[in-house]
Design a binder for these strands. Sequence first.
RNA 1: GCGUUCGUAGCUCAGCUGGAUAGAGCGACGGACUUCGAAUCCGUAGGUCGGGGGUUCGACUCCCUCCGGACGCACCA
Length: 584
Amino acid sequence: MKSLREAWRAAIATAVAAYLEEKGADPSIASAIVAESPPDASMGDIGFPVFPLAKPLRMGPPQIAAAIVERLAGSTLPPGTCKAVGPYVNVFLDRAAVAKAVVSAPVAGASYGSSDSLAGTRIMIEFSSPNTNKPLHLGHLRNDALGESVSRILKANGAEVLKINLINDRGVHICKSMLSYMTYGKGTTPDSEKVKSDHFVGDYYVRFNDLKKEDPQAEEKAQDLLVKWEAADPETIDLWKTMNEWAVSGIRRTYDRTGVSFDKFYYESQIYLTGKEEVQKGLANGAFFKAEDGSVRIDLSAIGLEEKVLLRKDGTSIYMTQDIGLAIHRHEDWPFDRLVYVVANEQQYHFKVLFYILEKLGYEWAKNLFHLSYGLVNLPEGRMKTREGTVVDADTLLDSLRDQALEEIQSKGREDSVADPVATAEQVALGAVHYYLMQATPSKDMIFNPAESLSFNGNTGPYIQYMGARISSMLRKRDRGEGKAGAGTIKPELLSGNAEWELVKLVASYPEAVELAGAGYNPAVVASHLYAVASAFSRFYHDEPILTCEDPDLAATRLALSEAVLVVLRNGLGLLCIPFLEAM
RNA sequence: GCGUUCGUAGCUCAGCUGGAUAGAGCGACGGACUUCGAAUCCGUAGGUCGGGGGUUCGACUCCCUCCGGACGCACCA
């Protein structure tokens, strides 16, 4: 589709340039010719507005369109025909030619939709980066799904991707859950209490609030504990290790559950002192300056900001110092062309400053750093608040959706049709959450409605999974010898009807969606394309017989189209971290 | 106060680098199952794209301004 579109654009641009020259106008204006999609397929498949030519040619757009079409008549063109439709030159593609390519999609299989648009590009992507004092919540699910999905999309476009996770395993927040456990834990463990280990740790973090009420010095004690940790006090380190192990192993179970994985883990406890030398270097070469109070700072007036401290007057480092060191360290670890940080939009300032600093330090790769900023996930009831206990825990949410999906499977009497009802319900739940989170534009805040996400109707994950299951079901029947498709031959030219054509075009343009999603770090592009494919298929399936078609050739051909749709759904859902289901 | 960002149908969201009558889904109302999975499909109602200017042949899209919301403006992370 993309190559056809480009071929037509080039052909028309050439004709336009020749026409401009003939009329004594500047032929370079022909580059203003861009491809659009007509609002209705009856008007054509690709549209080229000629408005920009009106002034230089001193002619009305409709006359120009007609003249261009006339000129094109003599030349060799890509498959299809063109026609002047008002002020547009519209192209009607050769349906059989496109259909022929589409029915061969199953041959490409898992690689259908992949491109080499980012071939040779090494991209490091950091996401998730949890704190080890509590389990993952709904907001993390958006972060994780975004990071994992963008990684898969970038890979599908040919990039070499390294997924990394920075575990925030030190700091006063960790000390609070430690202190709370020291007070109330009484030697219990996740195993002894039969609680998922990250939740076990999180519960003590919450109980720190009780501790504060009982002991007014609790905050100070947590600070003291941090000092002891930094001094490597053996007992403190021991407890810290134990509790971190609990937290991290629990969090990893949630990653496994949601299909998220990492190539490399970094631990804040191991790198929090890095960056100081880099700041010293910057001080030496004049990028930074020493303030009157002795702190090292950078002047940010060049980017419209004030000053930022990079080293305290006592020489200790801060968050920014750490991130400077870490970025440089990472580039040494794995020299990347781009580094993507998947971090909530509340840190926009931080990254703006960080990128500027790295540029000032002279790293040429600094201009290829990207903050994939995403918005908050809110609930229909309002914002999630830790203090009010309205934070939606990731595991709890998935459990609840899984149970609801299971009830649905049971009430539809489909337990015998799926291999493992509970596992299937789990996959439906995952499809519900991930699709809902991925269909929204990353940068915007969004409202997550659990009930809506799980609906089998409308623009949801389960709906798309269902279409995949229906196609799978037909293919199983064909393989069992049902219907007449087995006796027919695939004839792409039979797919020229309007119902088929809509579907053919959507399957054909799927690779473009993957490319666009990669260019914009935006899985929502894939999600909306999948929904368009699924709903077009559903209409087709409803209106036309496929497997049950009387004509064997038509049955075989329609089934081939269905199989191509399946390939798109399978690959696309994969990019969104949503399981494809053969039956549900 | 300054900065960033968002404001599209009752609700949740699309709308690609400005282009042909602003699109979906949910909800509402009304239809379609002895037929490939009705976990589906079809139809109807519903928007002066927050207000006002401007640029353009053309603005939901770009610029200015006002209103409203979110986030940020730490020697916290």
